[in-house]
Design a binder for these strands. Structure first.
Lengths: 210, 210
DNA sequence: CTAACCTTTGTCCATTCGGTCAAAAAATGC
DNA sequence: GCATTTTTTGACCGAATGGACAAAGGTTAG
């Protein structure tokens, strides 16, 4: 039974595939798909290249499996945006969750950023399908909040884009953020500062005009 | 006289080097540094690989020359932020200029994004030097506006980051933006919509509380 | 113990890529 | 027109890379 089948059967296969995916996350997120080599991933996973290729037939298989597995985690915060909650509170906790993800899962953010920068050759269908559908859904909710006057009227799509952009910026452009803040302000506190700033910006920016 | 000297002497050298840099901008911005090959750039520039290498000795020389040349253009909008102007007007036109750049020069934006994503190995000194200095300078101006009560008090650095993030998002993540907006809303109007949204967000978000 | 299956590895291969080099071709100065 | 310099090119090289393969080493069920 070959190991690279879509569904691993043995315990050893499940474990090794997980090890490989963790290593691949590390490597792909820092060098991009094209810039990463199978050797690098194999080394990071502590195994030989042919052994790795026993579990994943091709480099691209590792990447697509990884992306597929990351997707749910990545979209979870947006999924939690709740129609029933208080609009400004909901948006504020969405922003906070996204900033926490930028802090705790920067590699995941960079993988997506890298892929989209290159034109999303391997995940375009997902963007046009699953992602668009989710955003459409949440845009309806946000528009409802606007109609009932609980937040200011504006474009819900660009609102979501701007939350993505500002929060993921702290993962994807981390080097630049730290370089500009300098040694004194570039410590761990930057995420807390960012969260405070963004909450203020969006809450004040979206407060309905009396 | 070798052609790859820092200062080209003949007219033909100046022209060819420009042709190469334009081709390199196209190639580097879509595949990143590592993902681009000299052959691709040479083909895009309409010359043979050895001929290209006659003008730039190494692949990295092309890249650094290109980045160097792009830098001024790229930072121009921030440089124009004027102490003397009306704060909200100044910020609004900064945002508008940045959105126009995302629309008109997406390749430049993607080159920087790509480089920073990989940890800015080739431009880190510039980030820590020139860029930091410029931002420090403008942060002082913005803080002055806050002190005099003409805009709300907040963190000027994160304010600048958020303007970068939101505007450049429309260049760097263009594929995703178009995928989510769909065929009907993903047309050229998206930049105008984005500009309107962002101006509203920042102006309302920064309006000083009476 | 043994046969069948799963896992690991050393070796090898074709391709791609960055870069060199010498020689041809073109341009330039006199 | 001729000599010198600049530009262009074909051929080539070594290293890196994705991937194939067969053989060896383990594991497990009977």
């Amino acid at each position: 039974m070959e190991g690279s089948a879509a569904r691993p059967r043995t315990r050893i296969q499940t474990e090794k595939r997980d090890t490989i995916l963790e290593a691949a996350l590390e490597v792909f997120s820092t060098h991009g798909f094209r810039g990463s080599t199978i050797d690098q991933i194999a080394a990071a996973a502590g195994m030989s290249k042919p052994n790795l290729l026993y579990y994943f037939r091709r480099k691209e298989d590792i990447f697509t499996t990884l992306i597929q597995r990351l997707l749910d985690t990545w979209l979870a915060p947006l999924r939690e945006l709740d129609d029933e909650g208080d609009p400004l509170t909901e948006l504020r906790s969405y922003i906070r969750r996204k900033i926490e993800m930028a802090r705790d899962y920067p590699r995941e953010s960079r993988i997506f950023a890298n892929e989209i920068l290159q034109g999303a050759p391997r995940i375009l269908p997902m963007l046009e399908g699953e992602l668009k559908q989710l955003v459409d859904e949440k845009a309806v909710i946000i528009r409802g909040w606007m109609r009932s006057g609980r937040i200011a009227r504006t474009d819900p799509y660009h609102l979501i884009f701007s939350i993505w952009a500002t929060t993921q910026h702290y993962a994807d452009f981390d080097v630049q953020v730290r370089a500009v803040l300098g040694p004194d302000r570039g410590g761990e506190g930057r995420f807390e500062d960012a969260a405070r700033f963004l909450e203020q910006l969006f809450v004040e920016g979206l407060r309905p005009k009396g």
